[in-house]
Amino acid sequence: MTAREPRLLVVDDQALVRSGIVGLLEAAGLEVMGEASDGFEAIEQARRLRPEVVLMDIRMPGLDGIEATARLMAMPEPPRVLVLTTFDLDEYVYRALQVGASGFLLKDAPPDRLVDAVRTVARGEALLAPALTRRLIERYLAAPAPGVLAAPATELTPREREVWQLIAEGLSNHEIGARLYLSEATVKAHLTRLFVKLDVRDRVQAVVVAYESGLVRPGAQRATH
């Protein structure tokens, strides 16, 4: 049985850009429930339509995409937020991740990548290239004191700590399994418990917390394979 496509809300203050995104998504068979031109309208539409994924522009007049994302995350059953931006290195993007966005994509990405990104986020996975995750965090995150871990992190088992370290280094579930000689199912089980203990929604937020807690140091040597 083919999985049902996610319901979407597209938010962008430029009507031409917004209509172009909507056209690409609908051409791929995705269901666009509504559109919004600013953060206030996005929140209103999200509450009324209950989309599963919101494609969110960052820089908009009135209520910007960061504050709109934060307010969406406060909803009882918040949608996933995929940030669309013109800039590949932007402090606004990092701030959006901090408040709960599941990832981001450049507006000039190929149509098929946009569609894949929406489906990835809808499945509950984070979408952010590992190298870009590190660049964003290292540029905009003040380095914590060495060896100082946040309270929830001290409750992790040694194996959970290893898995956390490796996702912060940018490794996929498959790569983590190969490194630790674990099945992908076991890695996913560790991730589930890890997210609960850290009180984060997904992989991206877990990486942010890894830097904020001191588990990973900005500028440190990390895995690239």
Rank of each mutant, 00 (worst) to 15 (best):
193 R>K: 02
12 D>L: 06
221 Q>Y: 04
71 R>L: 03
186 T>R: 12
170 G>C: 00
14 Q>T: 14
156 L>N: 11
70 A>Q: 00
173 N>E: 13
44 E>F: 07
13 D>E: 12
103 G>I: 08
175 E>P: 02
137 I>D: 03
38 D>S: 12
197 K>A: 09
151 A>L: 12
98 Q>S: 09
76 P>D: 00
114 L>T: 07
11 V>H: 07
205 Q>C: 06
224 T>H: 07
111 P>N: 04
201 R>I: 11
85 T>W: 04
160 E>M: 09
96 A>Q: 04
212 E>K: 11
194 L>T: 07
58 I>H: 00
73 M>N: 05
185 A>M: 09
20 G>W: 04
67 E>F: 03
127 L>E: 02
67 E>L: 07
4 R>P: 07
183 S>G: 11
49 L>Y: 00
120 T>P: 06
208 V>N: 13
172 S>I: 09
81 V>I: 02
195 F>Y: 13
60 M>P: 02
112 D>E: 14
110 P>S: 06
164 W>N: 08
11 V>Y: 06
9 L>M: 15
133 T>D: 07
210 A>V: 03
31 E>R: 11
117 A>C: 07
66 I>N: 01
89 L>S: 13
56 M>K: 05
131 A>E: 08
112 D>W: 02
61 P>K: 00
215 L>R: 15
118 V>T: 08
179 R>I: 05
132 L>F: 09
44 E>H: 10
217 R>N: 10
196 V>W: 04
82 L>W: 01
126 A>K: 00
105 L>I: 13
143 A>E: 12
200 V>W: 15
199 D>K: 13
37 S>W: 10
199 D>V: 05
89 L>F: 10
145 A>K: 14
144 P>G: 09
135 R>M: 15
72 L>K: 03
56 M>W: 07
146 P>C: 10
153 A>I: 12
13 D>N: 15
48 R>M: 12
95 R>M: 11
225 H>R: 15
50 R>Y: 01
210 A>T: 06
63 L>M: 05
191 L>H: 04
185 A>K: 10
27 A>C: 00
142 A>P: 08
196 V>P: 00
87 F>L: 15
71 R>D: 00
2 T>F: 13
81 V>E: 02
10 V>K: 01
213 S>H: 12
206 A>G: 11
74 A>P: 00
86 T>W: 05
221 Q>H: 04
221 Q>T: 13
95 R>S: 08
111 P>W: 05
70 A>T: 05
56 M>E: 05
134 R>A: 12
65 G>K: 01
64 D>F: 05
129 A>H: 14
129 A>G: 11
69 T>P: 01
8 L>A: 10
220 A>F: 02
155 E>K: 15
81 V>F: 00
194 L>K: 15
112 D>K: 14
124 G>K: 07
50 R>K: 12
15 A>K: 09
49 L>E: 03
117 A>D: 02
143 A>F: 04
19 S>D: 04
180 L>Y: 08
188 K>I: 03
213 S>W: 11
88 D>K: 08
65 G>V: 02
173 N>H: 01
211 Y>F: 12
198 L>V: 11
10 V>Q: 09
92 Y>D: 12
200 V>A: 12
168 A>G: 14
115 V>K: 00
161 R>S: 14
13 D>S: 15
111 P>L: 03
128 L>P: 03
34 G>N: 13
48 R>W: 11
160 E>A: 10
118 V>F: 01
